[in-house]
Amino acid sequence: MSKIQSTFQRLQATGRRALIPFITAGDPAPELTVPLMNALVEGGADIIELGVPFSDPMADGPTIQRASERALANGMTLRRVLDTVREFRTGNAETPVVLMGYANPIEAMGVERFVSAAREAQIDGVLIVDYPPEECESFARAAKDAGLDPIFLLAPTSTEQRFRDVARVGSGYIYYVSLKGVTGAATLDFDEVAARIPQIRAQVGMPVGVGFGIRDAESARRIGEVADAVVIGSRIIEEIERSPRDRLAANVIAFLREIRTALDQIEGGVR
């Protein structure tokens, strides 16, 4: 069983929801990424999504675009992201780390080299935004063979055929994009999410995390009522943007703790 799967099992056994924060590696500075990852864990993260910066982040809104641009300006590369996780692992062996990014840096490194380097760096999952299931069967197989969970997105508009595609190719969890548009957009339709999550969970047989548009304890709690995990990205990047360096970790921890507390207050028990 993968570390991601056992994390969800452990949480489900105690009726808790997973908190999955996202940051971009190299933002605001490469040497601050490991301290920030540790801060995320301290704030209550169960899994960390670590963004690999890309020059053309087509699916991201302005906040994550800015993070990506800052990271690239700081000289962040896929190779250095892998080094960063290796360094994080010297102090934390348990918290699953999922790399999230775009296909081209991985193809430039070569899929085989990437997969074995990711395994060696003890990365647990990989979500490639512009690899839909039909274009990455062989990549997903290589990832699974190396013990990496290939994680896929589903959207409000996804058909049942997409559920089946993703169930076949993916593992770990499903990342449900809770609204139309790009990351960081503001409107969230809770009723829609509440109706869809049970369907998806039943059909794909994986835990479902919800992201895009979760900004505070209240929206996290409402999503947590129905989902297995809550993903928060743009809002944390904003926290990073507005924090002075000496308050960075403290502010991120304080922000996440509020979310953690809200999630842990959900009555819901085991599903």
């Binding site: 699916a59 959207a155 997409r162």
Partner: peptide
């Protein structure tokens, strides 16, 4: 060629 886009664009 192909269709290398995020899931959000697939239905479109």
């Amino acid at each position: 060629g192909g269709v290398f886009v995020a899931e959000t664009l697939i239905p479109a």
